[in-house]
Amino acid sequence: MTIHVDIVSAEGQMFSGQGEMIYAPAAMGEIGIAPRHAPLVTQLKPGEVRVDPGDGKPHEHFYVSGGMIEVQPFKVTILADTGIRAADLDEAAAQEAKRRAEDALANRSADMDLAKAQVELSEAMAQLRAIERLRKTR
């Protein structure tokens, strides 16, 4: 008896196939999942995911830097992160993004000048149209 395993990250599929046993680093300790496991959703810590395909074949190893795992009786879905996540790291990244915006837009008015934006965009569009016309008349 086997269980279907999908390991995906935001940047692509890492694994899809059958396994007899899956080992994953859950937030509250490593878990082993056999077919007919109770439905479970939990977070993963950075660590190694192993899939035992059975029949004495070698185990498949994957490194995940965290993520989520969903277990249904015959299906396991691992949503892997591509980088290390932690509340304080995320917070630092958010602060950094804010700071970048402040630096880039220092002493700019916070009110958008809609008229000015319109003028600018119509200029850009006029240029493009002029190029189009030039091509047609030639």
């Binding site: 935001a10 980088g83 958010a94 915006a101 009110d111 958008m112 000048d113 934006a117 600018e120």
Partner: peptide, 27 residues
């Protein structure tokens, strides 16, 4: 664009390159 026309920009990310990485967007 917003630097020229104004507007409240709360956060920004640039230079993600041709192969953008999701970690660069988290913040």
């Amino acid at each position: 664009f917003f630097r020229r026309v104004g507007g409240k920009v709360a956060a920004q990310a640039t230079h993600l390159g041709d192969a953008p990485h999701i970690d660069d967007l988290v913040g």
